[in-house]
Amino acid sequence: MDTKLNPAILKVEKLTCENDDVELFDNFIEMILKTKGSANETPADVLGGVFICKPKLVENRLTEKYKDQFLLNILEFGFGNRTYDKKGEIENYAELEKRLNRIIK
């Protein structure tokens, strides 16, 4: 299943980052909520990736429309995965980390 799903999920990140596709992002969030028991880390990594490129979009959706602690946990995990050993490569890492800490608390 993951071999078919993961490439599609990765496209969600690309399209959301390039086009501010809120509807696509919302569908992605709905998928995460419907598959809470999955061990697949790709959705968390994609959520972390979208947060890196569109922090305001992710923050707004997760604090206004989708107020779910599970999503905040997934975001924190995915952001950690995406930034592990790359903090110096991400231009606005400190700002993103502050923003993340503000919304997950």
Rank of each mutant, 00 (worst) to 15 (best):
L47G: 13
N19G: 10
L47P: 06
V58M: 08
D21N: 15
F25I: 11
D21T: 06
T42D: 00
T42R: 03
V22N: 02
A44M: 12
L62H: 10
N40H: 12
L33D: 06
R61L: 08
K65M: 05
L75K: 02
C17G: 14
E41G: 06
K11M: 12
E64L: 13
C17S: 15
L57C: 04
V12F: 10
T42P: 00
K56N: 12
L10G: 00
D26H: 05
N40A: 09
C53Y: 09
I29N: 01
F51T: 00
N19R: 12
L72C: 05
F25Y: 12
D20Q: 11
E41P: 01
K54N: 14
K54L: 03
N19C: 06
L15W: 11
K67P: 01
E41R: 07
I52W: 01
L24P: 02
I29C: 11
L75R: 08
L15T: 10
E13P: 04
V46T: 09
Q69G: 08
K14G: 00
F51V: 06
G48F: 03
L24I: 12
N19I: 05
L72M: 11
K14T: 14
V58Y: 06
V22H: 00
P43Q: 04
E23G: 06
L15H: 09
K11G: 00
A44R: 06
Y66L: 05
Y66W: 11
V22F: 07
E59V: 15
K36V: 11
D68I: 09
T42H: 00
K56T: 15
I52E: 03
I29Q: 07
I32N: 09
M31G: 09
G49A: 11
I52H: 01
E59F: 04
V50N: 05
F51S: 09
K14C: 01
E30G: 00
E30T: 11
N60S: 13
A39F: 02
N40P: 02
F51P: 04
I32C: 15
L62I: 10
N73P: 00
N73E: 15
N73R: 14
E59W: 07
D26Q: 14
K56E: 14
G37Q: 04
K14R: 12
N27H: 11
T16V: 15
N19A: 09
N19D: 11
V50Q: 01
L15M: 09
F28P: 10
C53H: 14
D21V: 09
L57N: 03
V22W: 01
A39G: 05
K67Y: 08
T16H: 00
L47V: 06
L10S: 01
D20Y: 13
K11E: 10
P43C: 08
N40T: 11
F28Q: 04
L57H: 02
K14P: 07
V58R: 15
G37P: 10
G49V: 08
V46L: 02
